[in-house]
Design a protein around this nucleic acid. Structure first.
Length: 288
DNA sequence: AACCAGGACACAA
DNA sequence: TTGTGTCATGGT
């Protein structure tokens, strides 16, 4: 009905499981409408729709170059090559079968970092609510199709740094408010620069993130994996811990050190990808 | 109505 | 290094 209002781009791509990708808990700003998945990437409203032979993308303003979009969506990734590195054990293959086509996006570092600082000890639906509240109150309105409900970009680190703790707590984030504000301040005043991390080694990049308030091993690995492309970063949360103990340790409880050593050795160069398949498989199917 | 959520942190042993 | 209590808030 609103076809003339949007500009369309088509990415021919096989094996793209859009639903699994957007609902697997790696990103929190997408919502499913009748016409497709809608979200905001870098201040631009986007609608995504899966077709038989690729990904249909709608934007409000015409796109002269779409490399940034292909990069975000990771449409050029050779997914088969990634999946072929997974260990051939039964649970891993079951996860691949159930979530086939799931991809790890390449998100904006600050938005990803902030989202996962807010994620600690929160359910995914609540994280989505907090992100939406934050965007509505402190983000910028973005251009949307005529008659469409208003949408807002994720607020900049600078804007968050200028929020009071009270304003942040009003967005339902509770004790995470001082963490988010302090990290935003460090990024704003130049104490830490995220733009260099993708040129560093995994351990060096991780240590930079670990110095930020509210960032521990789990959140650091999420940001390394979801925003910086460290495909071997392996976030260990309560779900993955339970899954690994059950599937690979015969139900025994193991220490964090044992778990970390096992994951880096067992899941290979794309361990983070394997982790996301196991995580989503566990949360959606959850039989066993 | 309890229980727990894609944890981090300070502190103890 | 590993274990415990605490921190808000609301979904299931």
């Amino acid at each position: 009905m609103n076809e003339e209002q949007t500009h369309r781009i088509f990415f021919p791509v096989k094996n793209y499981n859009l639903n699994a990708t957007l609902t697997s808990g790696q990103v929190f700003g997408w919502h499913q409408q009748l016409e497709g998945w809608e979200g905001v990437i870098d201040s631009k409203w986007i609608r995504l729709q899966l077709t038989a032979d690729g990904l249909q993308v709608e934007t409000v303003t015409p796109m002269h170059e779409v490399k940034w979009l292909a990069h975000y969506l990771q449409v050029e990734l050779d997914l088969e090559a990634v999946l072929s590195t997974f260990p051939p054990d039964e649970p891993m293959q079951a996860a691949v079968k159930a979530c086939y086509g799931l991809r790890i996006l390449r998100q904006n570092p600050w938005e990803c970092l902030a989202s996962f600082i807010l994620s600690s000890s929160k359910q995914i639906v609540q994280i989505q609510q907090i992100v939406k509240l934050l965007s509505h109150r402190f983000g910028q309105p973005v251009a949307v199709p005529r008659g469409h409900e208003a949408r807002y970009s994720f607020p900049s680190a600078d804007r968050i740094a200028r929020c009071s703790e009270k304003e942040l707590r009003a967005c339902k984030m509770g004790f995470r408010a001082p963490y988010l504000k302090a990290t935003a301040q460090q990024l704003t005043d130049g104490t830490v620069n995220l733009s260099q991390l993708d040129r560093m080694g995994l351990e060096a990049a991780r240590s930079v993130l670990l110095d930020l308030p509210g960032v521990g091993h789990k959140i650091a690995d999420c940001v390394l994996l979801f925003a910086f492309g460290f495909s071997n970063a392996f976030p260990i949360d309560v779900w993955i811990r339970q899954a690994l103990e059950e599937l690979y340790f015969d139900g025994r409880t193991v220490t964090q050190g044992q778990l970390q050593e096992y994951t880096v050795n067992h899941f290979g160069p794309y361990a983070g990808y394997a982790q996301q398949y196991l995580f989503h498989y566990r949360r959606t199917i959850k039989h066993l």
